[in-house]
Each structure stands twice: as C-alpha cells, then as structure tokens.
Computed example of a mutant assay.
Amino acid sequence: MTKVIIVYSSLTGNTEEMSEIIESGVKEAGIEIVRKDAYDAKAADLLQYDGIIIGAYTWGDGELPDEMLDFYEEMEELNLSGKKAVVFGSGDTSYSNYCGAVDLIEDKLRELGADIVHESLKFEYNASKEELQQGKTIGYEIAGVLCKSS
C-alpha cells in the first residue's frame, strides 16, 4: 500500500496547521498518511514511505529551526531515490532569505535522490485561505503522483 509521511516543525502553530491541511488532502485522496513533529521523527523513518512531505518555519535569516536540526543532519545518511517529495513552510518577508529553511530542505531532498513533485509552498506567518487551499491541493497532487507510479 502506498504511504506518505509528513514531518514538520512549528513554533506558533502556523506550519502545524498547514501540515494538517496537507494531511487532509492526502487522506481524501485515499492514501495512508502519518504526520509527525520533527522532535518525534527519525530521518530513517522516511525510508518506510513512498511520499515525503516536510514542513518547517524559517528561523532568523534563512535558518532551519532548532527542532529540525537533528532530523536534517540524520538525513545525510539516507538514499531517497524513488521517493516523491514536497516541502512547505512559513517565513517572514522582512528577511532577505524568505523561507530559507524550505529551500535548504528541498535542496537536501534532491541531493539525496528524492523527486520533488510540486513547487514548495511558502507562506508568511498565518497561511491565507488561498494558501490553505494550495496545501490541500498539494496533498491531492502527491497522492495522485504516487498512485500513478505504483
């Protein structure tokens, strides 16, 4: 059976809310999904899933949040070839490197062989209704890609 995992870090709840919306899109498409806070996840968990969705807020001027650092470093040991992936996260446009954590994670997934199947979803602070709908669409779309490839 096709399975997807969402791993996220959230400080104020904005990224967590988006993870829930994306999860609902995947579920409605009929795909099994697990959602974990980065503190409760191990990078090796990703190997058990066909689809990988990672979300993080950006700290400071483009940095990964502390909650995501261990997970991100553990990813270095993985081969994610054949995995389908999407990244999302919140940031602050007052910084020059808007949503830099999202870019770092996406680059790492590509480096490890994952196939990025949708443009990263970046949003400032609270996601708008339109951005929440985009999140749900991402859930549907990764599910559709996985169904076609299985």
Rank of each mutant, 00 (worst) to 15 (best):
K3L: 10
V4A: 12
I6G: 00
V7C: 13
S9E: 13
T12I: 03
G13L: 06
G13D: 09
T15G: 02
T15H: 03
E16W: 03
E17G: 09
E20Y: 02
E20L: 06
E20S: 11
I22Q: 05
S24P: 00
G25D: 08
G25P: 10
V26H: 00
A29K: 01
E32C: 03
E32L: 10
E32Y: 12
I33G: 02
K36L: 15
D40C: 14
A41M: 14
A41V: 14
K42W: 10
A43Q: 12
A44L: 11
A44S: 15
D45P: 03
L46S: 08
L46K: 07
Q48A: 15
G51K: 04
G51W: 04
G55H: 01
A56D: 05
Y57S: 12
Y57K: 03
T58K: 00
W59G: 00
W59L: 02
G60P: 02
G60I: 09
L64T: 11
P65F: 04
D66A: 14
M68F: 14
L69W: 09
D70R: 15
D70S: 15
Y72F: 13
E74V: 12
E74L: 07
M75G: 10
M75F: 06
E76W: 06
E76T: 11
E77Q: 11
E77P: 01
E77C: 03
K83S: 11
K83M: 07
K83C: 08
A85N: 09
A85H: 05
V87N: 08
V87M: 08
V87L: 08
F88M: 02
G91L: 07
G91V: 09
D92M: 01
T93D: 13
S94R: 06
C99Y: 01
G100Q: 03
A101L: 07
L104A: 04
I105N: 07
I105C: 09
E106Y: 02
D107G: 05
D107V: 05
K108R: 14
G113W: 13
I116W: 07
I116M: 13
V117E: 06
E119V: 11
F123H: 04
F123R: 00
Y125G: 09
Y125V: 07
A127H: 07
S128A: 10
S128K: 04
K129L: 15
K129N: 15
E130D: 15
L132G: 10
Q134Y: 09
K136P: 00
K136D: 00
K136E: 05
G139F: 06
Y140T: 00
A143R: 00
G144C: 09
S150L: 12
